[in-house]
């Protein structure tokens, strides 16, 4: 169990990490999700022992890590661009932590073969790392990290440098490797999908503070406040009568008259829908049409329409609310 208590990091007057407390049970993957500049990388570096703490405590299995240098913490760090050692080939990179632990030669090469198999790169042992693609470099870097058998694997935006299809494929592989090897991992990222695919639990970090954390699915659907909701992709915020009207139409009980946050997917242009709206603008996106609507009695909202929908400004349309994309704040 990795536990952070009231952890703070300062750079001069700037408070980069502000009294962060988190717990990560063994075998789980925790994602710290936040926009760039929120302090999440600093948090990761502090856990690794690469930044001095201004306050608080990091402990692993009940043991305080204060004063334990990076190389004795038993972690491994995976950066977004791999940081492979360029003067070593693939096998030597993966063997690096094994050598450090004095694993003998034959055992080392057997493990290197196993690990290359695990990350899906058999036969890559003797390749020069500079000849690898970005995705291959990340896989090798992952194998190198796993070779250390880290007590906690720290991942800094591990997939952000890759293109989209590769990112999605590697995210799936990474998830099954992490669960398959029962690796405890802490991931920081700004990418919702990356966090969603990889993590069991999610913590949202804004301006140095953890503002919400819990199981990934819960955080995703139940943001605690408007800032978190905005960061998680909720784009329309309603209060008062409009909020009630939309919630009621979606069958969402809202007795406390809480403000309502909507993702685009919460409102769908649909001839069967019970709400009415006027089209202000429509833009095609990859698998749908994004529409800015003026919802009758509510005001401007964002909605989605089927990919083949033809919407021109001024059109009158019907809208079906979907409570899956809604959250009460």
């Amino acid at each position: 169990m990795l536990r952070l208590d009231q952890l703070s990091v300062r750079f001069g007057d700037l408070v980069a990490v502000d009294e962060v407390s988190l717990a990560l049970p063994a075998g789980e993957v925790l994602a710290v999700l936040g926009p760039s500049g929120c302090g999440k990388s600093t948090l990761l570096r502090a856990i690794a022992g690469l930044e001095d703490l201004a306050g608080g405590q990091i402990s692993l299995d009940g043991k305080d890590l204060a004063g334990v240098p990076t190389h004795r913490r038993g972690f491994a760090l995976l950066f977004q661009d791999g940081q492979l050692f360029r003067h070593l080939d693939v096998a030597a990179n993966i063997a690096y932590p094994l050598r450090l632990r004095g694993v003998d030669r034959s055992e080392t090469s057997a493990q290197v073969v196993d690990l290359l198999e695990t990350v899906g790169l058999p036969d890559y042992a003797n390749r020069d790392v500079t000849t690898l693609s970005g995705g291959e470099q990340q896989r090798v870097a992952l194998a190198r990290s796993l070779a250390a058998e880290p007590r906690v694997l720290l991942l800094d935006e591990p997939l952000s440098a890759l293109d989209r299809s590769l990112r999605e494929r590697l995210a799936g592989d990474l998830r099954s490797i992490l669960t398959g090897t029962r690796t405890t991992a802490l991931l920081v990222t700004h990418d919702h999908d990356e966090a969603f695919t990889l993590a069991d639990r999610m913590a949202v970090m804004l301006e140095g503070q953890i503002v919400q954390h819990g199981p990934t699915q819960r955080v995703w659907t139940e943001p605690v406040d408007r800032r978190v909701a905005e960061f998680l992709g909720f784009s329309t915020f309603l209060v008062g009568n409009p909020a009630e009207q939309v919630a009621a139409a979606a069958g969402l009980p809202n007795r406390s008259r809480a403000p309502l946050a909507l993702r685009r997917s919460a409102l769908r242009v649909d001839p069967e829908g019970e709400l009415k709206a006027t089209v202000r603008r429509a833009v095609a996106i990859s698998d749908a049409v994004r529409a800015d609507l003026e919802l009758d009695g509510v005001g401007p909202v964002e909605a989605l329409a089927a990919q083949d929908a033809v919407l021109t400004p001024g059109d009158r349309v019907r809208v079906r609310p979907d409570r899956a994309g809604m959250a009460l704040l």
Partner: peptide, 13 residues
């Protein structure tokens, strides 16, 4: 970060 990776993997300074 290359040095930090190595340190995290267990290499002494």
């Amino acid at each position: 970060r290359a040095e930090e990776s190595a340190a995290a993997l267990g290499a002494s300074p």
